[in-house]
Design a protein around this nucleic acid. Sequence first.
DNA 1: ATGAAAGCGCTAACAT
DNA 2: ATGTTAGCGCTTTCAT
Lengths: 342, 342
Amino acid sequence: MTTKRKPTVKDVARLAGVSSMTVSRALSKPDVVSQQTRRKVEEAAAQLGYVPNLAAMALITKRSGMIGALMTTITNPILATTIEKLQQGLAAKGYHLLIGETVFSPDQEAHLLRAFLGRQLDGLILAYGYHNEETLALLRGADIPVVELWDLPEGPLPRQPIGRVVGFSNWSAGHAAGQHLVEQGYQRPGFFGFDDEREELRWQGFRQAVLDGLGLEPFRFKTSSIPSLDDGTRVIELYARDEIPCDALFFTNDMQAIGALYRCQRLGIQVPDPLGICGFGDLPIAQVSTPSLTSVRIPAEKVARLTVELLDQQIRGEEVKTAAIDVGCELIARESTRRNPE
Amino acid sequence: MTTKRKPTVKDVARLAGVSSMTVSRALSKPDVVSQQTRRKVEEAAAQLGYVPNLAAMALITKRSGMIGALMTTITNPILATTIEKLQQGLAAKGYHLLIGETVFSPDQEAHLLRAFLGRQLDGLILAYGYHNEETLALLRGADIPVVELWDLPEGPLPRQPIGRVVGFSNWSAGHAAGQHLVEQGYQRPGFFGFDDEREELRWQGFRQAVLDGLGLEPFRFKTSSIPSLDDGTRVIELYARDEIPCDALFFTNDMQAIGALYRCQRLGIQVPDPLGICGFGDLPIAQVSTPSLTSVRIPAEKVARLTVELLDQQIRGEEVKTAAIDVGCELIARESTRRNPE
DNA sequence: ATGAAAGCGCTAACAT
DNA sequence: ATGTTAGCGCTTTCAT
C-alpha cells in the first residue's frame, strides 16, 4: 500500500463510461444529468472512494468554501462558545472554519492574516476591532467579505470598521454595570480591566455612570491582558489589605469575578455586603456560583448566528445593507450585588 | 473598485522583468536565485501586494499546509486549551488549523471527515478514539498522517487506533480517583459520568480501586453527554434528599464538580466532610475554588505539543516509531477531599 | 542562475 | 443531456 494515487474525476469517468464533465455535473448538480448516468456515476465514485479535490475546485471556482476566523484567545469561554456556534452555523451552510489566534498581538494578527489571504477564503471573521496599519492595509487590499465581532464603532475612539460589524456597545456595557452598582447603593465602585481601546470604552461608560450617580471619579485598576481567575484573587488580596478604596468591583471578565468571589469566601469577606462584585460575559457559572454573580450578558449565540448570516449573504452576492448590528447587552442582577433585598 | 483581479506570479514576473518560474523560486527558495533578481522580485511582489495562491500550490505540491482537527466539543475548557496549543504549535511550523466539531455525533463526524479529506489536508487530529464504521473506512482509505488525542488503546474495549496516539489511560485516571477517595477514608464513593466507551474505562478503573480498597461495588450515576455545571447541581440536590448513598463523589469533568461544590455551599453541606468531591481535568478553577478541588490532572499542553511534533514528523516523511505516547495523569489532592488533615 | 513547456484536478463556456 | 476545449495559478522537470 504505497502512495496509492487518489482517484480523480477521470478515474470515475472511465469506470462509469462517461466524460469527466458528466461526472463533475452528476456530483455537483445532480438534476442536470439523467437519472441513469447519475446512478452510474455515483456508483463508480463510491466504488473508487472518490473524494473531490477541493483545492482544484477552489482554483477554478474562486470559492474555497472556507471562512477564516482571527480570534484573540479561544480559551475565553465566551469566545469558545462563539467559535462553536460559528462553526456549527458555517458547517450547516457548507463552509469550513479556519482558525487563527492572535493572542492580542497585532504582529501575529497581520502575519496570520497574510497567510490566510492566500487561501482563497470566502470570508473572514475578526473578533477584535482594533488593528495595526499592516493588518488594515492587507484587509483593504483583500476585497473579501469581512464581519467583525463584538466591537461596534463608537465613542471617543472612532474607528473605521473593515466590513460589517455584529456587536454591542462597550460603552453601554460599562455604563450598565456602573449604573447598577450605584443603584444598589454602593458608594465607591471600582473598575478592573485591561488597558486597550476596547476596555477604554467600557471604562468611559462605567465612569460616566458613576460620575452621574455619585459625582465622584471611580477607582480604576489595570489587570493583565489575558484575563484569568488569578486577577480576581490578587485584587481581593489588595482589598483585604485596605489598598483598594472600593465597596464594589466591576470586572470586565466573569472568570476574574469568580476568582474574586472565591477569594472573598476564603478570607471571610461577605459579598454583596460589604463588598459587591459584578462580572462581564454572563457565563453559565455566573448563575450557579454562590453567591450567584451579577454580570453583563452578551448574546454570544446571536452574534455568531448573525455573523454567519451576514457572511453568507455577502458571499452569495446579496446586497447587504446593514453596516452594523447592535445585539445589545443586558445587566443580569444577581446575589453578588443585591445589597437591598426588598 | 470592482472585482480587481488578484495579482499572480505572472504579474509579478512581468513587473520584475523575469519569468514566472524565477518569481516562484525567488519567493519559495530565495537562496537559489541571485541576490539581484531576488530583490527585484521581492519589490515587485510588495508593490503589487502579491499573495501566493495556496490552492494552486496545494494542487501541484499535494501539500495544503492545513491540518484538520475533529473535536467533540470546543467549549470544554480542557479542549479549548488543547486547541489553543495545537493552533500555536502548528502555526509555528507553518500549518493552519481547520476545525470541526462533532458534538459526539458519529454521523456528524463522518460527514465532516469526508469534507475534510477533500481538502488535501497534510494531517488530521482526532480528539475522540471511538468511531463508527463509515469514519473508519474513510480514515483507512485516506492515507494521511493521523494523531488521535486522549484515548490510549487499552482495556476491555480494545480498539485499533487509526494513527499515532497521544493520550493517557482512562482506566488509570478512574483508578487514581477511586483509590484516592478510599485512602481518604471515604466509605461509599460514587462515580458520575456519561455512558460511552471512554467513560466506561474510567468507570472500570474507579470500580476496581473501590472494590480492592473497600470490597464493595461503588455507586454509579449517568450524567448528560455534554457535561455542564448543572449536572453537578442536580446530583447534589439528589444527595440532599438522601437519594444518593455516597459520602464521596467523583465527577469525570471539573465543571460538574464545581457546580456540585457551589450547590453544597448553598445547601450547607460541608465539603470534604461529610461529603468529598473529586473532579477531572484539573482546570485552573480547581486550584482557586473554595474549597479547592481535588482533580485528576491531564497535561493538555503536553498532549498538544507532542501531537504537533508527531504530525510534523510524519508529514516531513520521517520515520515515526512510537505508535502511542502515554502522557500520564496525576491526582492532585486538594481540600475538597482532604478528610484527614494530618 | 534562469527559462519553457507541461500539467496538477477540476469546471466554465462553449459545443453537439 | 452529454462531450470538448481550455485554463484557473502555480511548480515540476528539463533545458539552457
